[in-house]
Simulated scan of single mutants.
Amino acid sequence: MSPAHDATRPSLAIIVPALNEAAGIAACLEALQPLRRRGVELIVVDGGSRDATPRLAAPLASRVISSPAGRARQMNAGAERATAARLVFLHADTRLPDDADRRIAAALDGGRAWGRFDIRLSGRHPMLAIIAAAMNRRSRLTGIATGDQALFMTRGAFDAVGGFPDQPLMEDIEMSRRLKRRSPPACLRASVTSSGRRWVRHGVWRTILLMWRLRWHYWRGASPARLAEAYRDVR
């Protein structure tokens, strides 16, 4: 019997890649417990943390697994262990809406192969709301989503495109490109809330210009490995 029709399987798996997230992993997973109590599978994929991330995550997750470091590799490892027919990939500093499971089911049962949420950036800087609005609008216009927007998809769509590409940066952009060939994304108006700390810590305008520059070079065919080096050098 297929996962979609097997009543013993969870209908949704939340996959959280983590690396040295001890400061926030418990809060992330605590926020997901109502979904877990409704039968959602919660998988944390640790990429070799040197802190207490796995220990703190263990009592709050369906399972904690290990994987080589790298967000794409970790997300693929989590998907491989998941048993659900629908998958959502969540950054450790991002919070899903309380009814995320129902919204995802409605979108995917409505014929879309994949989708994402709108995003809201937490923090007091006045530019954060503008950045989030621009991200949401750009995503609707292009059909491309970022990992901060909590990509979700059917198991069939994930398998059909071969999972996330094994690259150190822009894996979310490339995944969106591949999924677009199967269907347009479901762009949900409901928002996830993601931390605005990296935008503020590195300077809002500096970070905006950096991301524009990296995406421009990626669209022009630059190597993700070289772009990842540039990203690390200026952080």
Rank of each mutant, 00 (worst) to 15 (best):
A4G: 01
H5I: 15
S11P: 04
L12H: 10
A13F: 08
A18K: 10
A18G: 09
L19R: 12
N20P: 04
N20L: 06
E21K: 11
A23S: 13
G24D: 10
C28T: 10
L29Y: 04
L29D: 02
P34H: 08
P34C: 12
L35S: 14
R36G: 06
V40N: 01
D46M: 07
G48T: 09
A58E: 13
P59W: 05
V64M: 09
I65P: 06
S66M: 11
G70W: 00
A72F: 03
M75S: 05
M75L: 15
M75K: 12
R81K: 13
A85K: 04
V88R: 00
V88C: 12
H91S: 11
H91R: 08
A92Y: 13
R95Y: 10
R95V: 12
P97W: 08
P97I: 04
D99S: 12
D101N: 08
R103S: 11
A105P: 03
A106C: 06
L108Y: 02
D109M: 07
G111H: 02
A113V: 03
R116V: 06
D118P: 01
S122R: 14
H125F: 05
P126Y: 08
M127K: 13
A129F: 05
M135E: 11
R138C: 09
A145R: 01
T146D: 14
T146Q: 11
Q149M: 15
T154D: 02
F158T: 02
F158E: 00
I173M: 11
I173H: 12
R177M: 09
R178E: 02
K180V: 01
R182I: 14
P184M: 03
S194I: 03
R198M: 09
R198S: 14
W199D: 01
V200P: 00
R201H: 14
H202K: 05
G203Y: 06
W205S: 08
L209N: 13
H217R: 15
W219H: 14
G221C: 02
A222F: 00
R226F: 05
L227R: 00
